[in-house]
């Protein structure tokens, strides 16, 4: 599954009713892409059962 930061920004912003100015969209998507990469690293880590929330 390929992650599309721009599409994510559009969908998530609509979901919380947060207007993203056109001139900011690219920079917001770049930030999301950077955080997505960090999230993948965290999500890939297998936590032992005793750490379940």
């Amino acid at each position: 599954m390929t992650f599309d930061p721009g599409a994510f920004v559009d969908a998530a912003a609509a979901a919380i009713d947060l207007p993203i100015p056109a001139e900011d969209r690219e920079a917001v998507a770049a930030n999301i892409a950077r955080l997505h990469a960090l999230a993948q690293d965290v999500l890939a880590f297998e936590l032992p059962p005793e750490s379940s929330a």
Partner: peptide
């Protein structure tokens, strides 16, 4: 900071 805060407001809860 503005585009960073905009991005931060969008982060999924699971992350």
């Amino acid at each position: 900071t503005r585009t960073r805060f905009l991005a931060h407001a969008l982060l999924p809860a699971q992350w």
